[in-house]
Amino acid sequence: MSETRILEVVYRVRRFHPEKDEKPYWQEYTIQVEKGATVLDGLHRIRETTDPTLSYRYSCRMGVCGSCGMLISGKPRLACNTQIEEVLIQGNLVTVAPLPNFDVVKDLVPDLAPLFEKHRAVRPHILREGDALDPEPGTEWLQTPQELDRYVQFTYCIRCGLCMVACPTFATDPEYLGPMPLAQAYRYIADSRDGGFETRREIAGTAHGAYRCHYAGECSNVCPKGVDPARAIQLLKREFVLSYLKVIRHRGKASRSEGPIAGAERKAGVPEAPAYTIEQKPLT
């Protein structure tokens, strides 16, 4: 099977130049691509052969960096993760538009800054009382595999923003935190090392936080990494409600080893961890 099949496809791309255009408009390109080419490959082909002014954002080309989210044939997808043949409409047409719900910078480039601001707002890092980066250097957090399983699914998030585009609430409510930040809030709340439950409840348990989710389920449908933000948000609401009803109480409860773990011996040839190269300072 060394035969390469060539497809002739029409790309209908939404263009917008901030210095020339008042409104976006659609432009069509007819290109030839190989079978198995991704939507991102097609965009490269247009730039190489037809129109070098077309702007789009990408980086890794393999579904890891989360830069090339676009509205492809009406649905939010990663351009690098989607083969052209999967998304053909009316025979040989592909429509490519920038991710909605975010401002367009140029052509297919959305401004994802609000996404990252909301992400930062939920304090996406381990919070401990005293806020020290590592109050007891030389020891380590102990966490069982079961404790890891409670949140590890949500660590696969690549912040591509597709869930924010599919979410019906975020379409109308710019104040809504959105699926990605809420899922990340739960990722840290469910982490046994974390002690920031109260802090995050002040941010995510508000009138524009977790309670604006009504489980339309679209975020989980479009997530390219199987992170399932919808599940995280429902589990987040459970934590909030049960702690309000005083059924559960939250505190950072992971234990630390006192120095090296008892009974564990360093394998021959494995060097000691290097000494800290930075000064330990409290986080702000």
Binding site: F16, P18, K23, P24, G74, K75, P76, P98, L99, P100, N101, F102, D103, V104, V105, P110, D111, V165, A166, C167, P168, F170, A171, T172, P174, A216, E218, N221, V222
Partner: peptide
């Protein structure tokens, strides 16, 4: 910039 928010259409479209 171009405000690309779906608005009420997003209650029906987008996903």
């Amino acid at each position: 910039r171009y405000d690309n928010r779906l608005g009420f259409w997003g209650w029906l479209g987008g996903g």
